[in-house]
């Protein structure tokens, strides 16, 4: 079987009956989740549902307890993050997601650390995507505004041109008028061919934007469907979207 046919048939990321947690504490039970090539998937749910834990588990940041995670046809569960990043997944944490004392440009260079040489054309690509970062490239990232920091964080993660981008609550802490702008940028990243798995507290907006959504509660899958359907679903609205 050639790699191509496998890619065509199988999802990019397939999480199957995953159990995971922190130390001895199990958070996720029997979670299933898939992301197809080019797809934009969000995970929503109440606080403490384990949304971020799903994402951290994919990136090897939790204790693996059972199940499988297959990425590009390769089992990656139990691997540490420094190996997973070589497989083509990049992760943008929710908090502290930039190197505050480094300049914007240095943040991007660090994003490509695992490559032998820093690809200047990739830096240019990110500057084209986020023009404000080109202007501010010599500025220390910690001195920038919330929205600009989030751009630095995403640009850093995109430096490796990943197949899958993991975004943990990208709208958290942003001023309301910047949230739309941020979601527009994420749409564009997805349009450019990067698959996205995003966790969001802003459930309505996230479901409106994505291809498919997962509703997670108490560490288990509750609902899976395309975003618009979930938004319209009476039970989902009642329980998770505040009516």
């Amino acid at each position: 079987m050639s790699a191509d046919t496998q890619l065509a048939d199988d999802p990019l990321l397939a999480v199957h009956s995953l159990d995971a947690g922190y130390g001895d504490l199990q958070i996720l039970t029997d979670v299933d989740l898939t992301v197809d090539v080019g797809e934009y998937v969000t995970v929503v749910g109440p606080n403490g549902a384990g949304k971020s834990t799903v994402m951290k588990s994919v990136f090897g940041l939790t204790s693996y307890m059972g199940g499988t995670i297959v990425f590009n046809g390769e089992e990656i569960h139990g691997l540490p993050p420094e190996e997973i990043i070589h497989k083509g997944i990049s992760y943008v944490p929710q908090n502290d997601n930039i190197f505050t004392s480094l300049t914007v440009r240095e943040n991007l260079e660090m994003g490509a650390y695992i490559l032998d040489e820093t690809p200047t054309e990739r830096i240019e690509e990110q500057f084209d995507r986020f023009p404000i970062l080109r202007e501010r490239q010599r500025q220390r990232a910690g001195t920038m505004s919330g929205g600009q920091r989030q751009m630095v964080a995403m640009a850093r993660a995109l430096m490796l041109d990943p197949d899958l981008l993991l975004l943990d609550e990208p709208s958290a802490g942003l001023a309301p008028d910047l949230v739309d702008d941020m979601f527009d940028r994420i749409d564009r990243i997805n349009d450019d061919g990067t698959s996205i798995l995003m966790v969001e507290q802003n459930a309505k907006e996230a479901l409106r934007r994505c291809d498919r959504g997962y509703v997670l509660a108490q560490g288990e899958n509750r609902y899976v469907d395309d975003g618009e359907t979930l938004l319209a679903d009476e039970a989902v609205r009642q329980q998770f979207l505040g009516g």
Binding site: F59, E82, I98, F99, M110
Partner: peptide, 9 residues
Amino acid sequence: NKDLALVTG
């Protein structure tokens, strides 16, 4: 930022 250094590779 050690945690970020780790996830950055």
